[in-house]
Amino acid sequence: MHADTTVTSKKAAALAAFEGIASEPGVPKPDPILVIEKVVRRFGGLTAVDVDHVEVQRGSITALIGPNGAGKTTFFNQLTGFDTADEGSWTFNGKPLRGVPAHRVARNGMVRTFQLTKALSKLTVMENMRLGAQNQRGENFFRALIPSSWRGQEDEITERAEELLERFKLAAKRDDFAGSLSGGQRKLLEMARALMVGPELVMLDEPMAGVNPALTQSLLGHVKDLREEGMTVLFVEHDMDMVRDISDWVIVMAQGAVIAEGPPDTIMSDNRVIDAYLGAHHDAPMSAEEAEEQLQEAEAELEAEIEEKA
């Protein structure tokens, strides 16, 4: 089938780009869309994010993983302009983005979703979708008063929104309030709405959180589709099966810093990653020699005490 060949070719292209790249934090990529240099964010005494250097390869699906509190979402917020970094710089398509407000970041083609879905409850699903479209003439106060000036564009937007809703299986919900959707449907709507912006880089903050397992496969399919359409995806996720299934490259954060990078099938066995998740001094089973040693120490102490008393 034609669809299958394109799927494999896009995935193959992404994988080929990562061929022979060392699994080191901050390793350079052949064609990075996003380059991050020394981004630091402190909250009082706590350094939440301290990322030295990271690049995100264009046309790939890159996963950002890490234990709870690793600073993944804070890092997302810095990159998308929802929070201001204390130090550092980053470029998107070569354009510096530090200090650029969130709405301009989105207009540049870097669109994010949220960990807790932000469906606009009292707007219908269709209105949610239309809102995503850019450069709407009717969003200007004065032109809004002359419906004929924006009707045509509104029809085009609606058509595009209908196609996306069809693809995300939300077409039947078109005129329902977004607040009446289930958690999984809201995730779908949020992703579809982000696509209305026409992004080059889609940043998904925990796309699978709170989604019922039946919807997971379809969501995974949609994320893969983004790559097929030439978009780059960077996502935060806890679900390791999902990470292994769809990502081409994995970046691991712990305590605010990037500690490892690599392909998904080898990164999980990386010692730095295991240490980050389980702690560096985790309890290994005691060996026979260690047990013997401890026993002798205890006996020596006892004997010393007896001698003192005598």
């Binding site: 998308t80 929802f82 407000p101 969130a102 709405h103 301009r104 989105a106 207009r107 669109v111 994010r112 979703t113 949220f114 932000k118 469906a119 606009l120 409850s121 009292k122 707007l123 209105e127 949610n128 809102l131 995503g132 850019q134 969003e139 709405r193 982000a194 209305m196 912006v197």
Partner: peptide
């Protein structure tokens, strides 16, 4: 109306 519902969502859509 979208701003009333959630400002951050509207920001993330380039408004």
């Amino acid at each position: 109306k979208a701003i009333r519902e959630d400002e951050d969502a509207v920001r993330s859509l380039g408004k």
